[in-house]
C-alpha cells in the first residue's frame, strides 16, 4: 500500500553538523553527478524542452541548505547554498530529503505527496511538472549514478554501495534505492 505520510526526516544531528560544514564539497559532488546524468541520460534533459532554461530551487526542508539546479542540456549546473543566501529561481520544490529522493527513485507519487502537503511547489508550475515527468521516466538510481563517477571501478563499487544503501534505507525508511518490480529486468 502507498503510504505518503510515512516519510522519514533527516536525522537532526546530521542536519546540525551540516549547518557548520562547508558546502563546497556538496556543490562539487552535485555538479559532477549532474554532469554525469547529462551524459548517461540525455533524454532527461531533452524531455524538459523549453523548461530546461528554468532555474529550480530544490529545498530539502529537513536540511539547513538548499540546492539550485539549471538543467540546460549543453551545460547543466548544480550548487548548494545556505538558507539565508539570496538565490534567484523560477520554480521551488520543497519537502523532506527522503521525499525528494523517493520521487527520483519512483517510490512516491508526486501528486499524492503534493495533495497530502508532504511536498510543496511554488513558482513556475509547468517547469515543475516537466521536471517531475522527465525524472520519473529515467528510472534513476542515485547510488548507481554516483558510483558511475568512479569510472572503471564502478562495476566493483556499485553492488556493495547499493547493498549499503538498501540496508540504511531499510533501517531509516528512506527510499535510497530505485524501486523496481524486477519482473522484466
Amino acid at each position: 500500500m502507498f503510504e505518503a505520510r510515512s516519510i522519514p526526516q533527516f536525522p537532526a544531528v546530521g542536519a546540525l553538523a551540516l549547518r557548520f560544514a562547508p558546502l563546497w564539497p556538496l556543490s562539487l559532488a552535485g555538479q559532477r553527478l549532474t554532469d554525469r546524468l547529462g551524459k548517461r541520460h540525455p533524454a532527461l534533459f531533452s524531455r524538459l524542452g523549453d523548461q530546461a532554461d528554468k532555474v529550480f530551487l530544490i529545498d530539502p526542508t529537513d536540511l539547513p541548505c538548499v540546492f539550485v539546479m539549471r538543467p540546460r542540456p549543453e551545460r547543466p549546473q548544480f550548487s548548494a547554498h545556505r538558507r539565508d543566501e539570496e538565490v534567484g529561481w523560477d520554480a521551488r520544490i520543497a519537502g523532506p530529503l527522503a521525499a525528494l529522493i523517493g520521487l527520483v527513485h519512483g517510490a512516491y507519487d508526486g501528486d499524492a505527496l503534493f495533495f497530502s502537503r508532504d511536498l510543496a511547489i511554488e513558482g513556475d508550475t509547468a517547469a515543475v511538472v516537466a521536471l517531475r515527468n522527465a525524472i520519473d521516466n529515467e528510472e534513476l538510481d542515485l547510488v548507481r549514478e554516483a558510483t558511475a563517477l568512479l569510472g572503471p571501478l564502478a562495476a566493483l563499487a556499485t553492488p556493495p554501495a547499493q547493498k549499503l544503501a538498501s540496508l540504511i534505507g531499510a533501517v531509516s525508511g528512506a527510499p535510497l534505492t530505485r524501486v523496481a518490480t524486477g519482473r522484466f529486468e
Binding site: F2, A107, Y108, D109, D111, A112, R132, E139, T181
Partner: peptide, 10 residues
Amino acid sequence: RQRSRAYTTA
C-alpha cells in the same frame, strides 16, 4: 496518464 510510475504500479 499525468501521474507517476509509482501511482501506475500501485
